[in-house]
């Protein structure tokens, strides 16, 4: 009898322990609490803020503050311990191996021109010629007689690095007419200038085309610049959107990152015009 009682007590304990430990992402769980601070890339920030809102709704004791300021700031803040998680819209550089990157979405980079531009597609050589000032007129690449206005990104931007690497150009040899910072700035510039060409996040461009901005995405290597092609891995130019942590990171941070990578947030990723990742696929290595 005594034996039976102690057995049942042990069982009871086990079931209780099981109950409290297993559903850590369940809506009625109450063991996750605390505060997380995210800083970094302005591209990732709106997405991270939306995911954080949903995470907070599921865990009422958790507070997640999303700040912005650029990928560089995110990485610096994580290193100094000012932020728990950094956001970076690029791969980690060779001198940043002390940190761990967790990809939460992918983003394609596509070339855009003004809607009125008659050009159908540009070959990589033509694009290189345009950006290194060897072609100055759309006539040279089979278009109308109009001066080419080259829109380029500022040094350090992730889209710039992806673009330069894909075409094998080094930045000092690029001769541009306008240098911009943000994707939206590039799109507004191209939309306002008939002879302009630029490169931006495909999701951003698609969203703006949907709302009637007069720009057009050019296909690359025969592949249409569309988020679906980025998702399938067919589109050749893309970049990862990462969350970055220093090595011993808190349980809450890991829990949040897992949530960001789960299928529960794919609708949010899509609503911010990015490409959700499924574990195992390596769209943007």
């Amino acid at each position: 009898m005594k034996y039976f009682l102690s057995m049942s007590f042990v069982l009871l304990c086990l079931t209780l322990a099981g109950c409290t430990s297993s559903p850590s992402t369940n809506s009625n769980s109450n063991e996750l609490s605390g505060q997380l601070t995210l800083t970094g890339s302005s591209t990732v920030a709106p997405l991270a803020a939306e995911i954080a809102k949903r995470f907070e709704r599921q865990h009422s004791k958790v507070r997640i503050d999303v700040q912005t300021g650029g990928s560089g700031k995110g990485i610096a803040d994580v290193r100094r311990g000012v932020a728990d998680i950094g956001m970076a819209s690029r791969r980690l550089a060779s001198d940043e191996t002390d940190l761990t990157a967790h990809q939460i979405a992918a983003d394609g980079v596509g070339l855009i021109v003004h809607q009125s531009n008659s050009i159908a597609e540009l070959s990589p050589d033509q694009i290189i010629a345009i950006y290194t000032d060897k072609s100055n007129n759309w006539q040279d690449v089979g278009g109308d007689d109009k001066k080419i206005t080259v829109v380029h990104k500022a040094e350090g931007r992730a889209t710039l690095e992806v673009f330069l690497k894909h075409f094998g150009i080094d930045n000092p040899s690029v001769k541009s007419d306008v240098i911009v910072g943000e994707n939206e700035h590039a799109i507004k510039t191209v939309a306002g200038t008939e002879g302009a060409i630029g490169y931006v996040s495909i999701g951003t461009a698609e969203a703006d085309i949907e709302s009637g901005v007069p720009i057009r995405l050019l296909p690359l290597d025969g592949v249409e610049a569309k988020t679906v092609n980025v998702a399938s891995g067919a589109f050749p130019m893309s970049r990862p959107l990462n969350l970055v942590t220093a090595d011993p990171s808190s349980q809450l941070a890991m829990e949040f990152i897992q949530f960001c990578q789960s299928a529960d947030v794919h609708d949010l990723v899509k609503s911010q015009y990015f490409v959700p990742i499924t574990k195992g696929s390596d769209i943007a290595k």
Partner: peptide
């Protein structure tokens, strides 16, 4: 600033 420069369709 965020809507105009970071959020596509936020104009």
């Amino acid at each position: 600033y965020d809507l105009a420069m970071n959020v596509p369709g936020g104009g």
